Simulated assay, not measured.
Amino acid sequence: MIEFRSLTDDHPDLAHSPLLRAALLTLRYAQAHGSIGLTKTKTFKRVFVHWAVEHFDWPGKSAAEMFRYSKVINEYDFPPLEVLHYLLITLRLGRHFKGEFRLTRRGSDLAQAPAQLFAELIPFFVLKIDHASYARFQERPFGKWDVWMNVINVEADHGTTERALFAAFYGEEHDWDNAGWREMAAFSSCVLRPLEWTGLLVQTREERSGKHVHHVFKTPLWRSALKLDTDGMLQPVSVQ
């Protein structure tokens, strides 16, 4: 069972969520400007895409790095914004009207209510979206969220690696340098990345013996926002 706890608007752990931050910025931008312009294909116009790249502070996609390779960035070049646009429309926080993205009344209300927006946006994104649809490879890992999150709750409690997490579900024989790399890529894209985008997990990367090792940690937001069946299995954090 997965339960998201209710938080307050001023809860400090909400700051760990890149997706929530991006949603608040987008809603408030549309509120302040009256709307966001759309292209003929109903994507956000580049002027807003560039603003989003500069202000979202997205992990691994800094403005300096993105603009280093291209001075022209479209919505589909910035996947977090493309996914967020879909979420805001699907949840009816915004709508397309006469070539513009405009907030609904509910979107305007949630622009000033971070905790309520988190409660609307994050469970829907994690549990309801087909994460393979925007991944590089459209392959889905075998499993379900209830099992993934309850096992990650224990395995990553004091930090682990991407490969160790994968092995906990699917066995030790898979690795990035053998035939199991596609299964690992699907797990990373459809399970770990969504949890990182929401701010429930954070990953750090290092090079060890010529290989890139991804470390995975639960954030304070995981601990404050989630109630899981395996919570009773966790070891208390010792305080020195």
Rank of each mutant, 00 (worst) to 15 (best):
L226F: 05
E196Y: 01
L117K: 00
I122L: 13
L81D: 09
F125W: 12
F187D: 00
T161S: 14
I36F: 05
I2L: 09
L201Q: 02
G210F: 10
Y29Q: 10
L25T: 01
G107H: 04
R163M: 10
H16Q: 14
V239D: 11
C190F: 02
P123W: 03
G34I: 02
A22V: 05
V47M: 07
E206T: 15
V239N: 13
R193C: 07
F101P: 00
R208T: 08
I129F: 15
N150L: 13
L38V: 13
Q116A: 10
P220E: 03
D109V: 14
F137H: 12
S17N: 04
V83K: 09
T230Y: 13
W222A: 00
H96Q: 14
I89Y: 07
M184S: 05
G60K: 05
P236G: 01
N153H: 04
T26D: 04
P194Y: 12
L24M: 10
F4R: 02
L221V: 01
P18N: 12
S189I: 00
L20K: 03
H33K: 13
V191M: 00
I2N: 07
P18F: 06
S6C: 11
K71T: 06
R106F: 08
H131Q: 11
L91M: 09
D146C: 12
L121V: 04
R28E: 09
G94Q: 03
F118L: 03
A135T: 02
E75F: 09
L25Y: 10
G107Q: 02
K61Y: 13
A164Y: 11
S70L: 02
A186W: 01
Q138R: 10
L25F: 11
L19W: 01
G159S: 13
F142Q: 14
P12H: 07
E100F: 02
G143S: 05
F169E: 07
Q203R: 15
F56Y: 15
E75T: 10
I36N: 02
R140N: 11
P220C: 03
R21W: 06
Y69T: 03
A119Q: 14
V216K: 00
D175H: 11
E54H: 06
L38E: 05
I89E: 06
T161C: 06
P59E: 05
R193L: 12
D57E: 14
H131M: 06
S70W: 01
R102C: 11
A185N: 14
Q138G: 05
S35M: 08
